[in-house]
Amino acid sequence: MRKLIGTAIAATAVAGLAFGAQASTLDDVKAKGHVQCGVSQGLPGFSNPDEKGNWSGLDVDVCRAVAAAIFGSGDAVKFTPLSAKERFTALQSGEVDLLSRNTTWTLSRDTALGLDFTGVSYYDGQGFMVRKDLGVKSAKELSGAAVCTNTGTTTELNVADYFRTNKMDYKVVAFEKADEVVAAYDAGRCDVYTTDQSGIAAQRTKLKEPGAHIILPEVISKEPLGPAVRHGDNQWGDIVRWTLNALITAEEFGVEKGNVASMKDSKNPEIRRLVSAEGTMCENLGLQPGCFANAIAAVGNYGEVFERNVGPSTPLGLGRGLNELWSKGGIMYSPPFR
């Protein structure tokens, strides 16, 4: 009986406490000593673990940059692999602090799902891959085809829209895990594999004969992929947003992993503000001075991140395209650091 009363009192106390308090994500992260980052379950070039469990990729570098901005080290981060279906619940429930998992910024995700997108780290669009020997040259020929894809993605919705607007029939075979999609497509279950173009390039490397498949010319959607945080903690959202912007600005002004240390002596005021030689940019976000310099020192600028993970010299071999800086014909654009 005593125990019961004790439990009741404890429950009441806990209830009272938990109800009011709502710590900020930054405080939580600082207390933990690391950023908990939601990534994919293995998408080469974006977020992929090696045999030793070290994660690398463009999305991973965004996490590392945020960690470096807060803690000064790009290693103060832990990764949670999430399927497309699990990712939003994981973020909403606080299991991860930051979702950086080739996630498309859409209106309903931004609103009804209670998320905030903090910029675009990769401008993408949805494409189709088919076996060469099918002889298909255009997505318009795909009426009656079986299409393999992931559940819980924009992909699943876009493909429905595309076939509906073009009055074509299709059979969608939707798996939870990306590896099963690839395996089923490879086993001939589907004629078509569809996802983001970048995803196709990445998953293609897992096929038995990557050369036996072609990517069709049609791009059927806009897929701005970017990091997302929980709605309602603006400070945390700003930290992620401006860390990503810092990487883009760094590329624009020629600040690199190798030279960021010496940029404190730069004459350019924007660069000086970026590396905290002037102004209180980091302090405004609630971080230590030098936060962006640390982020750049950890992963390099956006161009370096791109080249290292998905660029022409990697197995993915993607060109910059839309992801080129605005000043060089692309649409990668950061608001000013001032």
């Binding site: 309903s108 209670g114 819980g152 939707a174 798996f175 939870e176 099963e180």
Partner: peptide, 24 residues
């Protein structure tokens, strides 16, 4: 079944629908 794309309740409703609406 969700593992192999058989569209039963958990795959369709607790999977896709949950993910699209976010109403866990």
């Amino acid at each position: 079944s969700a593992a192999i794309a058989y569209p039963e309740l958990v795959s369709v409703f607790a999977g896709t629908v949950l993910n699209q609406t976010g109403q866990a």
